[in-house]
Write a protein that binds this DNA or RNA. Structure first.
Lengths: 140, 140
DNA sequence: CTTGAGCCTGTACCTGCTACAGACCCTAGA
DNA sequence: TCTAGGGTCTGTAGCAGGTACAGGCTCAAG
């Protein structure tokens, strides 16, 4: 009730940041690179947001959490914005992203194997001989 | 035998790149950021490398392959260069790197689980309803 | 009336490279 | 001897995906 006597409370950039947990500057960055739309401005040139901006930013952040690149996010948004996106199209994007996630996991697992088996040979003593250094030095 | 009549064949930047498989420009970059030493120069100001540069660059590349950051590489090199590095010190660095590798794997596995279980619900049809979009849109 | 908070803009910084422009230098072939 | 082509040198800009700051407005509370 406390805002009844003046224009309805609008969301400014800081509000959007707080509501979504997004960094303040990142919001402007997303606008610059075109994944967030340019919002209307108040008379004092302040950005004015509404519920749909909140929803879109949440969408973007959720997609980023799932490891989609900003390019992929743009593709997803284009499909959604087109209104005529199909489950098949979205599934295609998600599947190719899934493949790259799995490739990264495999890479890291390989690294983990090499690293842990090497470290396991360490004595951990105050001696200069170290299997890790040997592994790095070897011209395998 | 073919170089006997002039000064011993020296390695230039391109040779070092070919021998190690490192990108030409990356060598200069590593020098700029201080992980490769500044090599001596020829009379015409060309960088002149030798075996030890080859060995050091291989060391760096191998560490990078194992996912060490350049900062971590710098630490490893400092220990090695110090001459008095101990197995315990190196093991410490390797172990903390290993922990971050494992953390990344866990992150990606979580992403993989969410993504694959969501995609599995897709019909893949030409319909606008899509579980992936729903998952991204939901204010969970 | 001042102080602090918020917003605006542009720009620089981060990691780990990669690529390019514009200048030299050197060697082999015609 | 000239020239074409490669190599090298320097500095700088670009990529992703942000983050952070300076310098200037505006606004509300005390």
């Amino acid at each position: 009730m406390k805002n009844r006597h003046r224009s309805v409370k609008v969301l400014r950039r800081g509000d959007l940041a707080r509501l979504t947990g997004c960094n303040l500057e990142t919001i402007r960055y997303y606008e610059n690179i075109g994944v967030m739309p340019e919002p209307p401005r108040s008379s004092k040139n302040y950005r004015v947001y509404d519920d749909r901006h909140v929803a879109r930013l949440c969408f973007i952040m959720r997609a980023r959490e799932l490891g989609f690149t900003l390019d992929e996010v743009r593709d997803l948004l284009a499909l959604v914005d087109g209104g005529a996106q199909t489950c098949g199209e979205v599934q295609g994007l998600a599947n190719s992203h899934l493949a790259s996630v799995r490739a990264k996991i495999d890479d890291l697992k390989r690294i983990e194997r090499v690293l842990s088996s090497t470290v396991a040979q360490c004595t951990g003593d105050d001696v200069p001989e170290c299997p890790v250094i040997d592994a790095l030095t070897e011209v395998t």
